[in-house]
Design a protein around this nucleic acid. Structure first.
Length: 210
DNA sequence: ATCCGGATCGCCT
DNA sequence: GGCGATCCGGATG
């Protein structure tokens, strides 16, 4: 590679390469596991915010009562049925947004909910969006909070995760020993399915392990 | 430390 | 008509 090309790429982003489409075209549980340590990026340059993913949940299809696709193909769930490597951003409780990465294969609706990130970049911007929050650890330790912190809303629904508006980049790998799997949080169906993946010792989780 | 209610609205039954 | 893949602040032990 020409000398300076990598440095040039790094100037555009201080993090690794964008995770390719094939990364998402795998079993949803595997994608959820492998997203730990990856870096969620929103916006560019002076408007960039980025966070290390420390908590995810897999939502695995129409047979998963907690997955929105349990309702079948509707206007809301449409992105889940589309190609992997797209953002599924939905509105909950009349007030908050949550962001997912669509996974596996088109037509088999499944996705990974990003539940918590450790802020890495754009701290001033994030603080400005979360004025009432004191501790850094509380800025993005929940699916609604991280969308507030990073400025994610419905305008990003259906966007490619390779776009400049929102993408996920390779980060420092997380070893199996650092990963813990637990039941998902905040749901009322399939409550015991072990589909939540966390970086066990992170200070940035939405909840402590049970 | 833990529990509880209120806010707020699009979507599905 | 009812209910969320939530968050926050206030009350209670």
């Amino acid at each position: 590679m020409r000398r300076g090309a990598a440095a040039e790429a790094r100037k555009r982003s201080p993090f690794g390469r964008k995770l390719p489409r094939e990364f998402y075209s795998r079993e949803t549980e595997v994608v959820a596991r492998d997203l730990l340590g990856a870096v969620l990026c929103v916006g560019q340059a002076h408007a960039l915010t980025a966070g290390r993913i420390v908590e995810t949940e897999a939502y695995v299809g129409e047979h998963d009562g907690a997955c929105h696709a349990a309702a079948g193909l509707t206007p809301r769930t449409r992105p889940l049925y589309g190609p992997p490597c797209t953002a599924y951003v939905y509105f909950v409780y009349g007030m908050y947004w949550c962001v997912n990465a669509v996974t596996r294969r088109a037509g088999l609706p499944s996705a990974v909910l990003i539940r918590a990130v450790e802020p890495l970049e754009g701290l001033e911007l994030i603080r400005g969006r979360r004025p009432s929050v004191r501790r850094t650890a509380d800025l993005a330790n929940g699916p609604g909070k991280l969308c507030l912190a990073m400025g994610i809303d419905g305008s990003l629904n259906g966007e490619s995760l390779l776009s400049h508006r929102i993408c996920i980049r390779e980060g420092d790998p997380v070893s199996d020993g650092e990963v813990e799997v637990t039941p998902r949080i905040g749901i009322t169906k399939a409550v015991d399915w072990p589909l939540r993946y966390i970086v066990r010792d992170s200070q940035y989780l939405s909840a402590r392990a049970r």
